[in-house]
C-alpha cells in the first residue's frame, strides 16, 4: 500500500523557496542585519531577530555532513528502497536535509555535492544532491 509522497506546505514563509526550486534555482534567505544565511525560511532571523530577510540565489554546492541508506521506508517511499537521505552542509553555512543520488557505494561523509532538481510530478520538484567530481 503506497501513499502519496508528503507534499511540502507552501505558505508565505516557504513559497519563494519552492518556486525557486521549480525554476531550477536554490534560493536561501539572508539576514539584512547580521548577514547570515538561514534555512529553512522564516519571517524573522533566528540569530538576531531581524525582520529584514532577503532572498539570494546560491551556488547549490556543499558537502555531505552525514547520511543514511534507507531500507525500511515510510509507506509512500517503499518502492524506492534502498535510497540515501543525508544532511548537506551548504557553502553558505546552512544545513539542509535531502536525497543524495548516484552510486551509494561511493558515498562518504565530507564528499562535495551539488544540487540537482528532481521533478516528482507536475506539482512537485525537489532539490536533491549529487556527488560532484571523482
Amino acid at each position: 500500500m503506497q501513499g502519496q509522497i508528503p507534499k511540502p506546505l507552501i505558505d508565505s514563509d516557504s513559497q519563494p523557496f519552492w518556486e525557486g526550486v521549480r525554476e531550477g534555482k536554490l534560493l536561501l534567505q539572508k539576514c539584512g542585519d547580521c548577514e547570515r544565511y538561514i534555512f529553512y525560511p522564516r519571517i524573522i532571523c533566528p540569530h538576531c531577530f531581524s525582520e529584514h530577510m532577503t532572498w539570494e540565489e546560491t551556488s547549490g554546492k556543499g558537502k555531505i555532513h552525514s547520511y543514511t541508506v534507507i531500507h525500511k521506508a515510510p509507506p509512500a517511499f517503499k518502492g524506492e528502497v534502498p535510497y540515501v537521505v543525508g544532511v548537506i552542509d551548504l557553502d553558505e553555512g546552512v544545513r539542509m536535509l535531502s536525497r543524495i543520488i548516484g552510486d551509494r557505494n561511493d558515498l562518504s561523509i565530507d564528499q562535495p555535492v551539488s544540487v540537482v532538481y528532481e521533478k516528482i510530478d507536475d506539482d512537485l520538484t525537489l532539490p536533491y544532491f549529487k556527488v560532484t567530481g571523482a
Binding site: I5, P8, S14, S66, T68, I70, A73, V87, L97, L124
Partner: peptide
C-alpha cells in the same frame, strides 16, 4: 516540509545519521 518529502523515516533515519 523540509524533511518529509525526502522520504526520511522518522525518527530512525535521524538517529541513523547521528
Amino acid at each position: 516540509s523540509y524533511e518529509e518529502p525526502f522520504g526520511i523515516p522518522s525518527p530512525v533515519g535521524h538517529y541513523a545519521m547521528a
